[in-house]
Amino acid sequence: MLAVALAVGTLLATAACSDDGDDSASTDASAGATSSAGQGTATASPTPTPLTSAGAQTALITAGDLEDNWTQVQTAASWRNQLLIGTVDAAQFLTGKTQAADCQRLLDGLYDEDLLGPPPGPSALTGFTEGNSRLLYQVAAYQPASLDQSFDWLKSLPTACDQFNAVGSDGSTRTVQVVEASLPKSGDTRQGLTVTVAGPSGGTPVTLTIDVAVVRVGDDAITVTNGGTDGADHDSTETAVSQGTNRLKDVQEGRSPASEPSEFD
């Protein structure tokens, strides 16, 4: 009898161990299935497609993206403002030639409308007018390292070029001020500036005020310059940045931008 009892006890213990092993294996299998299911339902971010010439055109904002009474024009590529022509006086800077070169690059970039340098990839631009103000909007593809350097330079300008003088071709002196300007949190990185140039034009003292906004989205960038002798409408600059960034992201991800903005602030 004792032998039978021991045998039964051994069988029960063996069965219990077997059951414990099955439960553990079942739990592990269930956890694995849950993990696999979770991985299977994860949504990967779309990979941006390289900007094409057609894509750059599609990414441009329209008059419908802007508030107020901006009118789109076809002559923006030829816009130039003579007040931006001048030679920076290096003698007024603590570091002389280095700071002067940064400030000269700013004036030349604003005049030539290529603050980030000539784009090596596809690009497009458009312009709008409202009274005496002009808003130029550009989209272009760049090299990543070049964009890094350009943004480092832009971020240094409110300190390096906070105020300086430039001498025009007629010998007149222009006073230039550069201050940082806020922008919506759009794109990967951004830099806003307000540049004021005061000097004579045709014998009359005038002041040109320009908003500058540059936004990076991947390896592409948006550049906005907006202003005139009547000042700069910063709200329009912010709207161009917000709506333009959305349009560029849509193009990068293979979607068609909305024909009208979803909302204005």
Rank of each mutant, 00 (worst) to 15 (best):
S169G: 15
P184W: 07
V167R: 12
T95P: 07
P46M: 03
S201I: 06
D28L: 13
D233S: 14
E238D: 06
L84P: 05
G86V: 15
V178W: 07
S201V: 08
P118L: 13
H234M: 04
F151A: 00
L110G: 05
G228Y: 08
A213C: 04
D19W: 12
Q243E: 02
A5I: 15
L51P: 08
A59H: 10
G55N: 08
A44Q: 02
A59I: 07
L12P: 06
L125W: 09
A44V: 02
V176T: 08
D20V: 13
T58V: 12
E67C: 03
D230A: 09
G192V: 01
V251I: 11
E253F: 08
N132P: 05
R190Q: 02
D188F: 15
Y111E: 01
T175H: 15
D170P: 12
D152C: 03
L183N: 01
L2K: 06
M1E: 08
W70D: 00
W79T: 08
T159E: 00
T41Q: 03
T75W: 15
A15C: 14
D152E: 06
S18R: 13
S236R: 02
S35Y: 13
F264G: 02
T49L: 06
E113L: 04
S182G: 01
S201K: 10
G192Y: 01
T34P: 05
T175W: 14
